[in-house]
Design a protein around this nucleic acid. Structure first.
Ligand SMILES: [Mn+2]
Ligand SMILES: [Mn+2]
Ligand SMILES: [Zn+2]
Ligand SMILES: [Zn+2]
Lengths: 171, 171
DNA sequence: TTAGTAATGGAAACCATTATCAATAAGGAG
DNA sequence: CTCCTTATTGATAATGGTTTCCATTACTAA
């Protein structure tokens, strides 16, 4: 029966998790600011997302959380992920397999905004940031032009490349 | 009871539909080439897609087809759309509402490859091609660089901008 | 403590998409 | 044109990811 005051036992994922010194985790402020409570399931879920570099489905998250907190329900995982998406803390992406996948969008010191290569054969996902700079530049221009022309307020974009990964090319 | 030899009564959508002169419709050859049969439901479905500039869901297509051929089943619509996607005749896109949407990818004289603006409030979709040229240029470069770096064979890409359309900005 | 409310989790409901399978019909051979 | 082979169809049932319900639990402030 995990309690709030035992939460310091939660694995933090070392430096990779996106801690901010020794204080509360960086997202605590965001939560308090919105009047949301910091609960065991939410901690656990964010913790799972912080520790992985993969693109987890809701069930993946559920399984990972379940190992440490077996009484956290799948429903709560869905609810929490939705909340985090809505807060901008987590990205929800569709890669064409038929389940939503989630990843931390960017901690203050965390991963940068990036795009994806998607293997249409094996489903592998490759993050890339290398060529983003030029892309961002063009995107900014394009967004401005589109916004003006269609009187559209652009808040976000999605770029994905589909094809065959190195493994799947071999055959 | 529509019969094959009545199919010339199918509305063709005028010039916008992508006819190739007076002969069989342009995709007939593709079908024969693959050994696929040309059937009433397939004609009707392609006809619906040819006549609209919207991004129809499978059910939308079903409803439209159903008005003229009430005995065409939803299952067949799904199957046919999947076939057309697999043949490259139709694009299947996810806009974040939870249903796949379909549009003709490009007839020989048909619409060009394009990207989308998606209103996250009302769901409106805006096609744009205006700024594509520069994008394509960068995309080509990016694709080449990514392909080399990750040994990835890129076959396709998806670009979408999310935000608020002119209507939804007013409030 | 206590009341008020946010959050939770198990179970049932939802709903787009697929799988089944017997019936139908496209299209080639004759 | 007729017949035959088999691709295609469509009603129905099943699937599976996601939501909804609602009674229970647990923060938080007074
Ligand atoms: Mn990623
Ligand atoms: Mn379009
Ligand atoms: Zn692969
Ligand atoms: Zn809108």
């Amino acid at each position: 029966m995990p309690r709030w005051d035992t939460m310091h036992d939660l694995p933090t994922g070392g430096q990779a998790g996106g801690r901010h010194g020794r204080g509360p985790l960086w997202w605590h402020g965001r939560f308090h600011g919105c009047g949301y409570r910091i609960t065991v399931p939410r901690q656990a879920i964010l913790n799972v997302l912080s520790k992985t570099s993969e693109h987890l489905s809701a069930e993946d998250v559920y399984i990972a959380v379940h190992k440490i907190y077996p009484n956290v329900g799948l429903t709560t995982v869905y609810r929490t992920l939705e909340l985090l998406v809505q807060m901008g803390i987590v990205c929800k992406i569709d890669f064409g397999d038929k389940r939503a996948r989630y990843e931390l969008s960017e901690g203050p010191k965390g991963k940068r905004h990036h795009h994806h290569l998607v293997c249409t054969k094996c489903g592998r996902i490759i993050d890339y940031t290398d060529f983003i700079d030029k892309e961002i530049e063009l995107l900014t221009k394009t967004e401005k032009a589109l916004a003006k022309k269609h009187n559209f307020e652009i808040n976000n974009h999605l770029i994905q490349f589909y094809g065959l990964c190195s493994e799947c090319r071999k055959e």
